[in-house]
Design a protein around this nucleic acid. Structure first.
Length: 719
DNA sequence: CATCACGCTGTTTTT
DNA sequence: CAGCGTGATG
C-alpha cells in the first residue's frame, strides 16, 4: 500500500515547487549536491500518487543503473508501482523502439549493434580496401578515424567543418575521410549494422518522418523527465521535442556547470535553448547544497564564476565550518603517489574508514603510478573508468562466438573467430567469409572450405563447436560454458596473464545465468556494459579505496576527496586554437571533481617535470583556473622532497630523450616524384614527402628513429 | 599467406 | 604498456 508522504517536510521550497509542478514544460537548474535525484524521485512518486499510470512516465537518465536506482527509491518510499515507470538511457529507449520499427527505415528489425571496437574494426577494414594509406604520411590511426566519424554524426556537421575545428593536424585528409564516412554508412546498411550513434539518429528520424511511431510513443509517455540534460546533444534534444510535442509535459533537469561530455557532441547550450523550445517553460533553480562544507562550495563557486557562459547560481549550505581546500604541489608524479597513499594510511590509522576516501583524475592512466604505490603499501582499491570489462580482448573473443550464433552474417565477429585459428590470418579469414556468403553454408559447414590446407584441423574444431551449439536450443549459460571450454586453450596461448582472464570468463558464465536468450544477453552487455567484474555485482567489493575518473564519479560523493591533476597541457600545434574551449571544459571537470567532496578536498599536482614519456605530466605546474582563484579560497602547500623514488617505468625501462619525427633530406635521384615509394639501404622503405628545390627531396621513414640521426644519408632507389 | 621479432610512438573522457 | 608498421622467415 502506498505510504503517505508529507512533501513539505522532506523537500525545500524549490524542490517542492519542482515536484508539485506536474503539467507543462519545466527546466530545473540543479547545482551539484542540491538534491536533484531526490527531487526526481519524489516527482515520480507524486505523479503516481496523483493517479498517473506508471507506464506513462518516462525517465531518461545517463545510465540505466541511475534510472533503476531512482525508481527503486521511489518504490520503497511511496508506491510499489513506481517500479513500472519506464526508465533508461536515450540509447536503450532507441534500441527498444528500433527493434520493433527499424523496418520503417529500411533496416531489418534484427539489426546487430556495433560497439566501439567493432566500429573501429569496420573502419579499419574499409581504409585498407580504399588503399588510402598508400603514400599517405601520418594518416590518422583507426581510433582517431572512429572518433572523427562518430563526432561528426553526433554534431551533425560535415567532416571538413569538424576537422577544421578540432583535427587541424589531419585536415589534408578530409576528402578521404569523407569518402570513408560514406563507405562506412553504406557498409552498415548492407550488413544490417547500427552503431551507438545510429541508434539515436535513427530514433529521431523515425519520430520526425513516421507519424505513427511518434503518436504511439507520445501517447504512451505522457510525462517525460530527462536527467543530466546538460549532457544531451542536439539530436537528443530533438528527440525530446518530438516526444513531448503533443502534451508538453516535459521536465529537464541539469547543471550547465557539470557538462563534461562535449567530446561526444553534448552541448550544455541545450539548457539555454530549452526555454526557446518551450516558451512557456517554468524555470526553477536548486541552489542549496546538502553535500559539502561552505569552504568547498566557495571554491566551486569561484571556479564557475570564471566561466564565460552559464546559468548563474550560487551554491550555499548550512554547514558553514570546515577545512579550506588544499592545493598541494607534490613534486613529481611518483612523489604524488607516495603522498596520497601515505596520507590515506595516516588518516586510517586515526580511525577513518577506507571507504571514506576517493581519488579522482581525468584519464584512466593518470592513476597508474598511484596504483603501484597503493599495492606496495598494501592498500586495497577498486577503480572505475578507463578500460572497460567489455573491451578486454578475451571477453570480446568469447562474445564473438555468441554473436555469430545469433547473427550468421556478422562478418566482424567471424573474422575475429577465424583469426584465432592457427594458420589463418587476415587474408584467409576474409576469403572464408566471402566463400560462406557465396555458398550460403551453415556455420558447421565451414570445415568444408576448399582452401583450408594447414588450417583444416582448426576449422574442424570450430565447426563442431558451432554445430553442437546450433543443434539444440541451449540456455545462454550452457552456451557460454561450452564456448569458454573451447576457448580456454586459445586463451592460454594468447595471454600470459591467463589466470586473471580466466576468472573474468567465469564471471561471464555467471552473468549469462540471468538471461533466457543469448540475443538479449548480448544487447544488454552492449547497452549497459559493466565497468568491471566488481561492478557486475558478482565480486564482493569489500573495504576498498575508490579510484575513479571524474566522468565515472558523477553523482557520487565521499567525505574526503583527493584530486590528482595534470595541467591542461597537451595540444598539438595544429590544435592550439582549441585551447580556450578545452580549458573551459577542464574547469567544469574540476568543478565536478571538487563537488564530490563532503568534508575535505585536496588537490594535488606535480610541480616538477619527471622526465618521463607520455603518461607523465608533459605539462607541469598549476592549472590556470586554480591560479585564478581569489585569495583565501584555497590554501597552498607543498609536499616536495618526501619519499622520492624512481617511477615504475624508469625502473623497468630507462627512457632517454627521443626524437619524434625523422624526415630525411637527401639528394634527388632522377625522376623522383612526391608520393613515390623509395628504398634506403639502411632504413628500409620510405615515401617522398616533399620536393625541396631542384635537387633535394624530403623522405619520410616511419619507425627508423635514432638510426637515421646517426648514420647520415645515402642515395635512394625507387621501389 | 601467416607468423615472429623488433623498433617506435603516444590525449582523454563514454552511451 | 599496447598498438602498429616493418622486414625477415616459414
Amino acid at each position: 500500500m502506498a505510504n503517505c508522504i508529507n512533501y513539505k517536510e522532506v523537500l525545500n521550497a524549490s524542490q517542492l515547487e519542482a515536484v508539485m509542478t506536474q503539467e507543462g514544460p519545466l527546466l530545473v537548474i540543479a547545482g551539484a549536491g542540491s538534491g536533484k535525484t531526490r527531487t526526481l524521485v519524489y516527482r515520480v512518486a507524486r505523479l503516481v500518487e496523483t493517479g498517473v499510470p506508471p507506464e506513462s512516465i518516462l525517465l531518461l537518465t545517463f545510465t540505466r543503473k541511475a534510472a533503476a536506482e531512482m525508481l527503486e527509491r521511489a518504490a520503497s518510499l511511496a508506491d510499489e508501482r513506481c517500479r513500472f515507470v519506464s526508465g533508461g538511457t536515450f540509447h536503450s529507449l532507441a534500441h527498444k523502439v528500433l527493434r520493433g520499427a527499424a523496418h520503417f527505415l529500411g533496416f531489418d528489425n534484427n539489426f546487430t549493434i556495433l560497439d566501439r571496437s567493432d566500429m573501429e574494426e569496420v573502419i579499419q577494414s574499409l581504409v585498407q580496401d580504399m588503399t588510402i594509406g598508400r603514400g599517405a604520411i601520418r594518416f590518422p590511426k583507426r581510433s582517431t578515424l572512429t572518433n572523427i566519424v562518430s563526432k561528426a554524426a553526433n554534431l551533425e556537421c560535415g567532416i571538413e567543418t569538424l576537422m577544421g575545428e578540432e583535427y587541424g593536424q589531419f585536415l589534408e585528409y578530409a576528402p578521404q575521410i569523407k569518402k570513408l564516412q560514406g563507405l562506412y554508412a553504406e557498409y552498415k546498411r548492407d550488413n544490417q549494422l547500427m552503431d551507438y550513434d545510429d541508434l539515436i539518429v535513427f530514433l529521431r528520424e523515425l519520430l520526425s518522418t513516421h507519424e505513427q511511431t511518434r503518436m504511439v510513443l507520445s501517447d504512451q509517455y505522457r510525462f517525460v523527465m530527462v536527467d543530466e540534460y546538460q549532457d544531451t546533444n542536439k539530436i537528443q534534444a530533438d528527440i525530446i521535442k518530438w516526444l513531448s510535442r503533443d502534451h508538453h509535459n516535459i521536465m529537464a533537469v541539469g547543471d550547465d556547470a557539470q557538462s563534461i561530455y562535449s567530446f561526444r557532441g553534448a552541448n550544455y547550450r541545450n539548457m539555454f535553448e530549452f526555454p526557446m523550445l518551450f516558451p512557456e517553460a517554468k524555470l526553477i533553480k536548486l541552489e542549496q547544497n546538502y553535500r559539502s562544507t561552505q569552504p568547498i562550495l566557495n571554491l566551486t563557486n569561484a571556479l564557475m564564476g570564471q566561466a564565460q557562459e552559464k546559468y548563474t547560481k550560487c551554491l550555499f549550505t548550512e554547514r558553514k565550518d570546515g577545512e579550506i581546500p588544499r592545493v598541494v604541489d607534490t613534486g613529481t608524479e611518483p612523489e604524488q603517489a607516495f603522498f596520497v597513499s601515505t596520507k590515506i594510511k595516516e588518516e586510517m590509522s586515526r580511525g577513518r574508514s577506507i571507504r571514506d576516501f576517493a581519488v579522482l583524475f581525468r584519464a584512466g592512466y593518470h592513476s597508474f603510478e598511484l596504483e603501484v604505490e597503493l599495492a606496495r603499501q598494501g592498500i586495497p582499491f577498486v577503480k572505475y573508468g578507463g578500460f572497460k570489462f567489455m573491451e578486454a580482448a578475451h571477453i570480446k573473443d568469447v562474445l564473438a562466438y555468441l554473436r555469430v550464433i545469433v547473427n550468421r552474417d556478422d562478418g566482424v565477429s567471424w573474422g575475429r573467430i577465424l583469426r584465432m585459428l592457427k594458420n589463418i590470418g587476415p587474408g584467409k579469414s576474409q576469403a572464408i567469409i566471402a566463400w560462406m556468403k557465396e555458398s550460403a553454408c551453415s556455420a558447421s559447414e565451414i570445415a568444408a572450405w576448399p582452401g583450408a590446407g594447414k588450417a583444416g584441423e582448426g576449422l574442424k574444431g570450430l565447426a563442431s563447436l558451432l554445430g553442437a551449439l546450433s543443434a539444440r536450443d541451449f540456455a545462454p549459460t550452457a552456451v557460454v560454458e561450452q564456448v569458454v571450454k573451447y576457448y580456454k586453450p586459445i586463451l592460454q596461448e594468447k595471454f600470459d596473464d591467463f589466470p586473471r582472464r580466466e576468472k573474468d570468463l567465469e564471471q561471464l558464465v555467471l552473468m549469462a545465468e540471468r538471461y533466457r536468450k543469448i540475443s538479449t544477453f548480448l544487447d544488454d552487455l552492449l547497452l549497459e556494459p559493466p565497468n568491471s567484474a566488481a561492478e557486475m555485482g558478482v565480486v564482493h567489493k569489500g573495504d576498498c579505496l575508490t579510484l575513479s575518473t571524474v566522468h565515472s564519479a558523477k553523482g557520487l560523493e565521499w567525505p574526503v576527496v583527493f584530486v590528482i591533476w595534470v595541467m591542461e597541457g597537451y595540444f598539438p600545434p595544429a590544435r592550439a586554437n582549441a585551447h580556450e574551449e578545452a580549458i573551459e571544459e577542464e574547469r567544469r571537470l574540476m568543478y565536478v571533481a571538487a563537488t564530490r567532496a563532503k568534508d575535505r578536498l585536496i588537490l594535488c599536482y606535480p610541480g616538477r617535470e619527471t622526465g618521463r614519456s607520455w603518461f607523465s605530466s608533459e605539462a607541469r605546474g598549476l592549472s590556470s583556473f586554480i591560479q585564478a582563484l581569489p585569495h583565501g579560497v584555497v590554501e597552498h602547500a607543498s609536499s616536495r622532497g618526501r619519499g622520492v623514488r624512481a617511477s615504475v617505468w624508469e625502473r623497468v625501462m630507462p627512457l632517454g630523450k627521443r626524437e619524434s619525427r625523422f624526415i630525411a633530406t637527401t639528394e634527388k635521384p632522377e625522376g623522383l616524384k612526391k608520393g613515390d615509394r623509395v628504398r634506403h639501404p639502411a632504413f628500409g622503405q620510405g615515401v617522398v614527402a616533399k620536393l625541396v628545390g631542384e635537387e633535394k627531396v624530403e623522405v619520410l621513414f616511419k619507425n627508423a628513429g635514432r638510426k637515421l640521426l646517426h648514420l647520415g644519408y645515402t642515395i635512394l632507389e625507387k621501389v
